[in-house]
Computed example of a mutant assay.
Amino acid sequence: MKKLLIILALFTSVISLGQSVKKLTPEKNYAFKQGEWLKFRMSYSNFLNAGFSTIEVKETTNFNKEAFHIIGKGKSTGLVSLFFKVKDDYQTFMYKETLKPYRFIRKINEGGYTKDKEILFDYEKNEAIVKNHKHNTETKHPINDEIQDMLSSLYFLRNQKLKNLNKGDEIELPMFFDQEIHNFKLVFLGEEIIKTKFGNINSLAFRPMVQAGRVFKEQESVTVWISNDDNKIPLRIKASLAVGSLRADIEAFKGLAHPFNIIFDN
């Protein structure tokens, strides 16, 4: 449950495979806007309801610069909540002009395991200031000018031109996570029509390269489908775990920036 909540926010932390990478080009118009709200239903092994996650887009300013405030929340429900209660709060603040984050918040309670961290990104000094509110500590870490955080990564990628990708192309960007930089990598699997509660939808399928081991079955354990339209919203995420599987499906939405293209059967 807790791993899928992280995947939903960032497509999970990934490892670099050292292969050729497709360079992205940003869209002229935003793929999202203030008021966008997405809700996802989580399930374990395709039958047990595990919880819900929501992501909302708001607007704010920082030093007179326009910015987005993205809020992601997740919580366990039903039987899962009885033996493993989850309540997560992820927030990122990113400048509209560059879609680079300047502040990131992570407050989680996962079965009694808690974190309360805040990251401030200073691009003049190229450093990330990590404030651990739980332990009342502050550390500084070097970053580069293209850094993203766990949540801003999703919105940065959504605002890139993805329709010109070829099957097998890879996307990579640096992401600051757990006080160090990780290489965030996705492999494009191709186009696919998937069935959702709203109807059949054209989608683009991607595979984040994850760390095989205690949690995930293998490096290719996670698949992500996003809508093949100007919104590029996540539609479905599947993850094969060492024990069982996790899945997230789009449950509700509102405030999309562009038309949501649904294929209706004749």
Rank of each mutant, 00 (worst) to 15 (best):
Y30N: 04
K115V: 07
G213L: 08
E27A: 12
P234I: 12
I181T: 12
L10E: 10
R158N: 07
L4R: 08
K254P: 04
N29E: 15
F47G: 04
F47P: 02
K238T: 13
P174I: 09
I15W: 01
K195R: 11
P101R: 08
S76R: 02
I263N: 01
I201Q: 06
E27M: 14
F63A: 11
R207A: 09
K65N: 14
F83C: 01
I6V: 14
Y95G: 01
L4S: 06
D265P: 10
Q34G: 08
K85M: 05
N231H: 07
E170I: 07
V224C: 06
W225Q: 05
K131S: 06
H135I: 03
T196E: 08
Y155N: 12
D265W: 02
P26Y: 07
S43A: 09
E118Y: 10
T223S: 11
Q91I: 05
H69D: 05
V14E: 14
A128D: 02
L154K: 07
F176G: 03
E27Y: 09
G199W: 03
M150L: 15
A248N: 14
T12N: 13
I263A: 14
I15A: 13
L235I: 06
M209A: 09
N200Y: 14
I143N: 04
T92A: 05
F121E: 07
E220W: 10
E138Y: 05
F93V: 06
D116C: 00
N126H: 12
A242F: 11
F32K: 02
A31Y: 04
E97M: 05
N136M: 00
L79Q: 04
K87A: 15
Y155F: 13
E251V: 02
D89W: 10
N144C: 09
S227H: 01
E97S: 13
S152N: 05
T139P: 00
H133F: 14
K131M: 05
Y113I: 15
N202P: 02
E66W: 06
K39M: 06
F93L: 15
G190Y: 10
T61I: 15
L79M: 15
E218Y: 13
H133N: 15
F198S: 12
S227T: 11
L48R: 03
I201S: 02
E172L: 13
T12G: 13
Q160F: 00
Y95T: 01
